[in-house]
Design a binder for these strands. Structure first.
Lengths: 348, 348
DNA sequence: CTGAAAGCGCTTACAG
DNA sequence: CTGAAAGCGCTTACAG
């Protein structure tokens, strides 16, 4: 590293001493070359176990910590994984993110979070910015994105796993569940309880919400009960307040409705509270169900029937799959379907 | 993006062509030296406006994106800011985080999030790991941490701003509010409404929760109503379910209580639902108040009286302060108190 | 299984 | 206001 033949007369001066031990210091202390120290520490390639031991001891004694920037520059791979989620205000994505981070951190990867707000343009901007950092991997939510975003991902060559949905496209990696099947299941549950005029009340209207709408429709068509007039599709962001409003206007317009399937628990919780306020008996007059089983749904009055989605497990498995891809290990199943669970409580 | 003039075949072989334009390519195209291009692009030091223009045009044409790793290695400063929060399951911290990121991202900094779970050991581990990445700045929650953590921060020399609380320690930067004053205010509100047997029901018991307890005690002592028997301090993580349980056992033990101050809205929302379930009139028999004004509190039955904390503003201002510190700009006030707001709804 | 050389793409510090 | 030189701390690719 230091060429011994540069006599600048006065100062030996390493220009900016960082104070920290470098790989060279470790190599020197262990009596090996820098590259051997590097290999010993990374566990890459075969190195004489005796030397590995020596290097590890030296590293420990010197308190050596590899410099991520140097490593990234030399290897053209950073230790960052970018994770793009639509929203942070939805507990679902927060749990997903936490599970991802819990899996990636021990493997030495840093999570870079990006929030798209369900906007294609924001997703593109985030992708552009994060891809410039040459992340080692990418985790994105769902399959629905702009063609530009899709191409950026493809061209970057960065391994990418899709969260939350399942798709059979070969070469595309994903971990999730069938939103359609889950919605069909909970709708069938309502049918089995004898409900016939079942409304679907949705906000946000992102892809997954619309996939749920399809499941709802399929179940009702099969039962000969489908009525488009009972679909309430509002593009506003979901919230408890919106759930209450939508329920109230639905009841005013269609007093004969006997069940409401809210596209998520936020909306459903608000709907339940509005029913309480309006003195609409649940499940006496209307049954109410939600989707996701978020915190609080079991505390409602009455407790909410819903679909439990395995978001933590999705995060963990997606991160694990990404880890394999980043290491160049074979991934047997490019799509993993983690299923869902119907949680029947007293609201239906 | 693709350099149009890459000489093929007889390749002078840059060993690992990344394909991306480098600063040198930009400099060449602009007819200046690399260092001038660097300065022109960063806006550092004075550069002839004519040259700046040329460099910018060249950079644009070549689709030049600076390599963060190279920059970090050369300058010994990364573009990362580490943000340590206790929990992701509390909407408060999520909003804080989002505000921080929204402020930092446009300034070119990446946010590295860490979750401590209120554990000193986890915070130390995160600090150790993140500090190895030489972050440009640090954002931590509150002032309460282990001596080891404190020293790591101090020794690192990395600019650090503390979130959520206010403290007058010189040289220590913080943006927040007085948890004690806010708790005192809402307790006084209950006193003004004629309540006398006011309970404080808390979970988690982190520093801020205990500061609120102090505010509660101070207000009650001033009014001559303080009764330690009305304090319910449970170390469990807070949740709606816990709020319900704690209210129920409190009412069983002290049926004479006429108001309950829950340490946060999670607990209070659960308490309100439990009261509904138990047919305890609110505010008829007991008044109920919370803290933070989280989503849903305005939708409860009855809507919850609470303290609105300016967490988004705290995140924004803390990030802004950190930006100044990272740039070496003077920061006039090392502590910023953003206050709070008493939101009176029907539960009190 | 091990190493000498080169270089990743920037910025620092020093001159002019 | 501008630039030639050196080097940040690693890893790649090539030999042996």
């Amino acid at each position: 590293m230091d060429s011994p033949s540069s006599p600048p007369s006065s100062a030996p001066l390493r220009r900016r001493a960082t104070g920290r031990a470098t790989l060279n210091d470790v190599a020197l202390a262990a009596g090996v070359s820098a590259i051997t120290a590097s290999r010993a520490l990374r566990g890459a390639r075969a190195v004489d176990p005796v030397l590995v031991e020596k290097v590890q001891v030296a590293a420990l004694q010197l308190g050596y910590v590899p410099d991520p920037a140097a490593r990234a520059l030399a290897s053209a791979r950073s230790s960052h994984v970018a994770v793009l989620i639509p929203l942070l205000s939805n507990a679902l994505f927060v749990e997903l993110l936490e599970a991802v981070q819990r899996t990636l951190a021990p493997a030495g990867y840093q999570t870079l979070m990006g929030v798209t707000h369900y906007q294609a343009a924001e997703e593109e901007a985030l992708l552009r910015s994060y891809l410039a950092h040459r992340p080692a991997g990418l985790l994105v939510t769902g399959f629905d994105r702009s063609e530009a975003a899709r191409q950026m991902i493809a061209r970057s060559g960065v391994p990418c796993v899709h969260l939350m949905e399942t798709a059979a496209t070969p070469g595309v990696y994903g971990v999730g569940l069938s939103q359609l099947d889950a919605a069909r299941t909970i709708t069938e549950h309502l049918l089995q309880r004898g409900r016939r005029r079942i409304a679907y009340v949705a906000g946000q209207l992102d892809t997954r919400v619309m996939q749920r709408a399809e499941g709802y429709r399929a179940a009702l068509r099969d039962a000969g009960c489908y009525n488009p007039d009972l679909e309430v599709l509002d593009p506003s962001p979901t919230s408890m307040a919106l759930g209450g409003q939508l329920l109230e206007s639905l009841l005013a317009r269609r007093p004969d409705v006997d069940a409401v399937f809210f596209c998520n628990d936020d909306l459903a919780q608000g709907g339940l509270l509005a029913a309480l306020r309006l003195q609409v008996a649940v499940p006496g007059r209307i049954a109410v169900v939600g989707f996701n089983d978020l915190a609080g749904s079991d505390q409602m009055l009455p407790p909410l029937t819903t679909i439990r989605t395995p978001r933590a497990e999705i995060g963990t498995q997606a991160a694990t799959m990404l880890l394999a891809l980043m290491r160049g290990e074979p991934v047997l199943h490019s799509t993993v379907d983690l299923g869902y669970q119907l949680v029947v409580r007293s609201s239906s």
